[in-house]
Simulated scan of single mutants.
Amino acid sequence: MKLTNPLLLLAIGAAVGMLGWLAAVLTTRYSLNTPVLPLTGLVTMGVIVVLTLVLGIRVLRWRNGKKKTMLNPILAAWTLVLAQACAYTGTVLLGWHAGIFIDQLRLWNLRSDQGISWQALAMAGGGLAMVVVGLAVERFCRIPPEDSDADTAPGPQEKRKPQAEGEYAYRGH
């Protein structure tokens, strides 16, 4: 599996942000409710972030040699997939709610209650936390290069394949 590309996440976030802004403009124009997730969604986001971080720390401790037992390769693969899903989901939530917040800023002085604005900002913050934890845990799942690779340096005629993608913890030895 390839590492998640931060530029791809940025592009997805910007595109979804534009959609969120457009949805907020249209709902305001037609006097509908603003499409913001309720604040109880932060609890769910928090559970996902904590679970991802706990599983990622388990993989990191195993990778750094702090555990004596073998790591279940399926658990490591699930941790990697969960981390990537967390990053992508956080990107979508961040983009959507940031777009809504930007739309709400133009109405800031006209409204006496800025609850929707603060709600959108809180949800965008939760999305940012998901992105950061997802990307960090994804890095935890990478296996460092073998020490034996340094001992067998390629000769002048040999060429080594660069390991730009790296290996993940679930691809055992």
Results as ranks from 00 to 15, higher is better:
residue 47 V to E: 14
residue 54 V to G: 08
residue 170 Y to S: 03
residue 109 N to Q: 15
residue 115 G to H: 07
residue 135 L to V: 14
residue 63 R to F: 07
residue 142 R to C: 02
residue 69 T to W: 12
residue 14 A to W: 02
residue 139 R to P: 03
residue 6 P to G: 03
residue 81 V to W: 11
residue 110 L to G: 15
residue 42 L to Q: 12
residue 103 D to M: 09
residue 17 G to Q: 14
residue 37 L to A: 07
residue 99 G to E: 04
residue 122 A to I: 01
residue 167 E to H: 14
residue 126 G to F: 00
residue 138 E to M: 13
residue 67 K to E: 15
residue 140 F to I: 03
residue 54 V to E: 14
residue 151 D to N: 13
residue 24 A to D: 15
residue 7 L to Y: 11
residue 99 G to P: 04
residue 102 I to A: 09
residue 166 G to F: 11
residue 72 N to A: 08
residue 66 K to E: 11
residue 99 G to S: 09
residue 170 Y to G: 04
residue 113 D to L: 04
residue 101 F to Y: 06
residue 128 L to R: 01
residue 44 T to P: 09
residue 21 W to E: 03
residue 61 R to G: 07
residue 39 L to N: 15
residue 93 L to I: 14
residue 24 A to R: 15
residue 118 W to T: 01
residue 21 W to C: 04
residue 23 A to P: 05
residue 80 L to I: 02
residue 7 L to H: 05
residue 115 G to R: 08
residue 136 A to T: 15
residue 59 V to W: 12
residue 48 I to P: 00
residue 89 T to V: 13
residue 13 G to A: 14
residue 44 T to I: 11
residue 159 K to A: 09
residue 123 M to Y: 04
residue 133 V to D: 06
residue 106 R to T: 09
residue 105 L to G: 03
residue 15 A to W: 00
residue 43 V to S: 13
residue 105 L to E: 05
residue 12 I to L: 10
residue 9 L to A: 02
residue 120 A to L: 02
residue 52 T to D: 11
residue 84 Q to K: 00
residue 167 E to S: 14
residue 20 G to N: 00
residue 56 G to W: 09
residue 97 H to N: 10
residue 99 G to L: 05
residue 8 L to D: 04
residue 138 E to R: 12
residue 149 D to N: 07
residue 137 V to R: 03
residue 130 M to A: 13
residue 29 R to I: 07
residue 167 E to Q: 15
residue 7 L to I: 08
residue 15 A to F: 02
residue 20 G to W: 01
residue 32 L to I: 01
residue 148 S to H: 05
residue 83 A to N: 10
residue 57 I to P: 06
residue 126 G to D: 00
residue 94 L to M: 15
residue 21 W to L: 11
residue 99 G to D: 08
residue 103 D to V: 01
residue 12 I to M: 08
residue 165 E to H: 12
residue 34 T to W: 07
residue 57 I to M: 09
residue 54 V to D: 13
residue 42 L to T: 07
residue 143 I to E: 12
residue 86 C to D: 11
residue 75 L to N: 12
residue 56 G to L: 05
